[in-house]
Design a protein around this nucleic acid. Structure first.
Length: 225
DNA sequence: ATCCCGAGGG
DNA sequence: CCCTCTGGAT
């Protein structure tokens, strides 16, 4: 079986298991999407949802954020990790959107990348989810799951992103992002991956060789040279 | 390589 | 205690 066929088989299998993947995002516009993704850094989606519920009641657009006191915003997003940096970045970002982008979120990847607090993962998610353009955000789940599958051997998200974009058909990028996240949360967890209940185990290096070889446990102590 | 950083699990 | 949670900037 050709490599691309195997990849599509895995993704289709995951699509059957997680039909809801990516459909539960509750944002009303690209701006709210951008804010939510920025808040999600090193933070559980549950915390993000809790915070955004209150935040989006008051903040609907960059204009609402641009004039906000940092301390006020900090209090509103507290509960998310890294909240002070996030508050600072969000306000700085909102001001740039007002001054340079007419209060709109840019649709261009490179322009997004220049915004404070926006890296490749965030920019990829915004273009793909918000603007239906090709993009594959590589977060901790995407990196871990795809790496265990044996689709690449990168520890650097940027390297993994390039490799995944090379081997996954473009039409599947956004979908793959959500599917890996769903699978990474429910089954292919960082700590105790539930390989027994994994529907793609037979296509997975880690799953086939078995957790018992402790390959993954070494990952943490290895100092990725 | 290190820092930011609270919450939750083991 | 340690690790992880939809990272990014220095």
């Amino acid at each position: 079986m050709a490599k691309t066929d195997k990849i599509l088989l895995v993704l289709r299998t995951l699509a059957d298991v997680y039909p809801q993947a990516g459909t539960r995002l509750k944002f009303q516009n690209p701006f709210q999407l951008l804010v939510a993704v920025m808040l999600s850094a090193r933070t559980t989606d549950e915390q993000v949802n809790r915070v955004t519920r209150g935040l989006f009641a008051e903040v609907k657009s960059p204009k609402d954020l641009a004039s906000m006191e940092v301390g006020i915003l900090e209090d509103m997003i507290k509960g998310c990790g890294l909240y002070r940096q996030k508050a600072r970045n969000l306000i700085a970002l909102a001001r740039i959107l007002m001054e340079e982008f007419g209060g709109e979120v840019p649709t261009d990847f490179d322009q997004l990348l220049r915004l404070p607090g926006v890296g490749r993962k965030t920019a990829n998610v915004v273009v793909s989810v918000g603007f239906a353009k090709p993009g594959l955000g590589v977060d901790t789940h995407v990196l871990r799951v795809s790496r265990r599958l044996g689709w690449h051997n990168a520890r650097d998200p940027q390297v993994a992103e390039a490799e995944l974009k090379r081997i996954i058909p473009e039409s599947w990028w956004a979908r793959a992002h959500h599917l890996f996240i769903s699978h990474g949360r429910a089954v292919c967890r960082a700590r105790k991956p539930d390989c027994d209940r994994c529907t793609i185990r037979l296509y997975c290096q880690y799953g086939v060789s078995g957790q018992s070889d402790k390959a993954e446990d070494r990952l943490q102590s290895e100092s990725s040279a």
